[in-house]
Amino acid sequence: MKKIISLLAMVLAIQSFAQSYAKVEVGPEEDISLKIPTDFISMTDQDRMKRIYSSKVPLAQFANENQDVTLGVNYNIMRWTEKDTDLVYGFYKASVNNLFDEIEFIQDEIKEINGRKFIIFEFVSTVKNDNAFSGSRAAKNYTYIQYTSYNNQVLLFNFGCRARQMGTYQTIAKEIMNSIEIDD
Rank of each mutant, 00 (worst) to 15 (best):
Lys2Ser: 11
Lys3Met: 07
Ser6Gly: 13
Ala9Phe: 08
Ala9His: 01
Leu12Met: 09
Ile14Pro: 00
Gln15Asp: 07
Tyr21Met: 01
Ala22His: 02
Val26Lys: 08
Gly27Thr: 08
Glu29Cys: 00
Glu29Lys: 01
Glu29Asp: 03
Ser33Phe: 00
Lys35Ala: 12
Ile36Trp: 00
Pro37Cys: 03
Asp39Ala: 09
Phe40Pro: 04
Asp45Lys: 02
Asp45Ser: 11
Ser54Pro: 08
Ser54Val: 00
Lys56Ala: 04
Lys56Asp: 06
Val57Asn: 06
Pro58Asn: 04
Pro58Ser: 05
Leu59Pro: 02
Ala60Val: 08
Ala60His: 01
Asn64Lys: 06
Asn64Gln: 05
Glu65Trp: 01
Asp68Phe: 08
Asp68Lys: 10
Val69Trp: 03
Thr70Ala: 05
Thr70Val: 11
Val73Glu: 03
Asn74Lys: 01
Asn74Trp: 05
Asn76Asp: 15
Met78Asp: 07
Trp80Pro: 00
Trp80Tyr: 13
Trp80Glu: 06
Thr81Pro: 00
Thr81Ala: 03
Thr81His: 10
Lys83His: 10
Asp84Lys: 11
Asp84Glu: 15
Asp86Trp: 05
Leu87Trp: 11
Leu87Met: 13
Val88Asp: 07
Val88Arg: 11
Lys93His: 15
Lys93Thr: 10
Asn97Met: 09
Leu99Lys: 05
Ile103Val: 06
Phe105Cys: 13
Phe105Tyr: 15
Phe105Gln: 12
Ile106Met: 03
Ile106Leu: 10
Gln107Asp: 15
Asp108Phe: 09
Asp108Val: 06
Asp108Tyr: 08
Glu109His: 03
Ile110Cys: 06
Lys111Asn: 11
Glu112Pro: 07
Ile113Met: 05
Gly115Val: 04
Gly115Lys: 09
Lys117Asn: 12
Phe118Glu: 09
Ile120Ala: 15
Phe121Asn: 15
Val124Gly: 11
Thr126Lys: 10
Thr126His: 04
Lys128Pro: 02
Asp130Tyr: 13
Asn131Gln: 03
Asn131Glu: 04
Asn131Ala: 09
Ala132Ile: 09
Gly135Ile: 01
Ser136Asp: 13
Ser136Met: 09
Arg137Leu: 12
Ala139Val: 15
Asn141Gly: 09
Asn141Thr: 15
Tyr142His: 14
Thr143Glu: 15
Gln146Arg: 13
Tyr147Trp: 11
Tyr147Val: 07
Thr148Lys: 07
Thr148Met: 11
Asn152Asp: 14
Asn152Thr: 08
Gln153Leu: 07
Leu156Thr: 03
Phe159Gln: 13
Arg162Cys: 04
Ala163Asn: 04
Arg164Glu: 10
Arg164Leu: 06
Met166Val: 07
Met166Glu: 14
Tyr169Ile: 14
Gln170Leu: 00
Gln170Pro: 00
Thr171His: 04
Ala173Arg: 08
Lys174Tyr: 03
Glu175Ser: 10
Met177Pro: 02
Met177Asn: 08
Ser179Arg: 11
Ser179Thr: 12
Ile182Met: 01
Ile182Thr: 06
Asp183Trp: 00
Asp184Thr: 03
